[in-house]
Simulated scan of single mutants.
Amino acid sequence: MAPVLTFAYPGDLDTLTGGYLYDKHIIHELENLGWTVKRLSLGDAFPFSDAAALAAAADQLAIVPADSLLVIDGLALGAIGPLAKVFARRTGAAVTGCASAPISRGFVALVHHPLGLESGLSPEQSTALLASEAQALAHARHVIVNSPTTAATLESLFAIGPDRVSVVVPGTERPALDTQASHNDGEVSCREHSASPILLSVGSIIARKGYDVLVQALASLQTLDWELRIVGDPDRDPIVFEALTTQITRLGMSDRIRLLGALEPSALEHQYAQADLFVLASHYEGYGMAYAQAIARGLPVIGTTGGATAQTVAPGTGILVEPGDVESLSKAIAQLLSHPEQRQKIAQASRKHAHELPSWIESARRFSESLIKSDTQPAAPDPAQTCSH
């Protein structure tokens, strides 16, 4: 009998962001591995939900059938907070079918990065989200994270030890790797080119992605030849998007910076094919899927050391600077724009490293193993019954 999983998430699973793409790919590959996966949307109100929306989500999770494992995406779970106890004591037979009596099934948390570390939050919002996330994760039977950095962050912030955490890094589409293998390894690239070198940046237009830092860094490079294309959802934070468009206009770069919005995979693939350089000035990344996708396509990368990026961007595949360091970012971009031979050398390193990145089926196998392991572990201690001495 196929193991059954209910995968709960906020909003629309087809949203074109890294977290949702992770969820969607993992679900698809788990089904290919024989799992029956039931998709459960908890509504659009996260992470800043009112009490009624939170209670409704908790009620939905509490009635998930006992024969199903339950995974909850952290974007929703972190906001649910203490209400997690409502569905933390679900019972049923173990997924392996070896248990002689019902066991506590609880739920597995999937954390891409702590909600309270999102850029652009007020101190009060950050504190409230971190407190809520701590309460929710305290009830989790097991936690799956997307990088060793996220695992270490959860241990530091919430005292969640390694025995309760599994790391499942995102996969990378292998067709892109195969395409890059056909590129010329000499000085001349087979990429499509416009009249100017194309810089590509991919990620939702939110404060954490640091687009204001990138635009400011490019402002001092207007004597060089380049074009920047930004691919990302402009609706996630309208205030940040408006500020970005105002900044671009004020600096006189509207003719050199194109805001393309969120793109479907085929259209995004076309942008990767045309790009000469990938650059993203994120303040923090739980993993940095966009960086990995760029490396998989043989692009030289410029990024920051924020969060897990230094793990994702392997040595030799790019240049990393401190988050928010406009001057260093500007120098790194100028260096690679002015030295195409260095770009080519880094591109070769990216193509070589690309074959070491996991595929989505490999990541899904690891995810599956983590779920089965979690279903045989003792349940998380009830925080309400934990005594202090």
Rank of each mutant, 00 (worst) to 15 (best):
V301T: 11
L69I: 07
G261S: 06
V313C: 01
P65Y: 07
L259M: 11
P123C: 13
L337S: 09
I198P: 00
N32F: 03
A207T: 11
A8E: 09
P234G: 06
I230W: 03
P65A: 12
F87P: 05
L177Q: 15
R351G: 03
T96V: 04
K85Q: 12
E31F: 04
G116A: 13
S100A: 13
F278E: 09
V95K: 01
V108N: 02
P265N: 05
A314D: 10
S330Y: 07
L329N: 12
D375I: 10
T305L: 10
S104R: 12
A131I: 08
L299Q: 07
T376E: 14
F158D: 08
F87E: 13
L16M: 13
D14P: 00
A273T: 07
E187P: 14
P114F: 07
S166K: 08
P238C: 12
A314R: 15
S359M: 11
R366Q: 14
L228A: 01
A84N: 12
A62M: 00
I205L: 12
E124P: 05
A292N: 08
Q216S: 15
V168T: 04
L61Y: 10
I198Q: 15
P265W: 02
Q60V: 06
P238T: 12
V326A: 09
L244A: 04
H389N: 15
S100F: 10
D73F: 03
T304E: 01
A79T: 07
L30W: 02
S220G: 15
L320T: 04
R343D: 13
P162A: 14
H25L: 04
I206H: 01
R297S: 08
T149Q: 10
L13E: 03
A136V: 02
I372H: 07
D23Q: 08
H183Q: 15
E322I: 14
K345G: 12
I333D: 02
D237S: 14
P170T: 03
S166F: 05
R174C: 01
I198T: 14
L218P: 03
H142K: 01
H139V: 02
L200D: 00
Q348A: 15
G78M: 04
S189W: 12
P381S: 06
T6W: 05
S41I: 08
D212L: 03
G161W: 00
P65R: 14
I205C: 10
I302P: 05
Q247V: 11
L228P: 03
T386Q: 15
G92Y: 00
R191Y: 04
D14F: 07
T245R: 15
L154G: 09
F367Y: 15
G286H: 10
A79W: 05
A101C: 03
S196M: 11
V108K: 00
M253P: 13
E31M: 08
L137R: 06
D375H: 09
K38M: 03
V231D: 02
E227T: 14
G81I: 06
H353Y: 09
G120K: 09
Y272K: 00
Y20V: 07
I144A: 02
I239F: 13
A314S: 11
T305D: 04
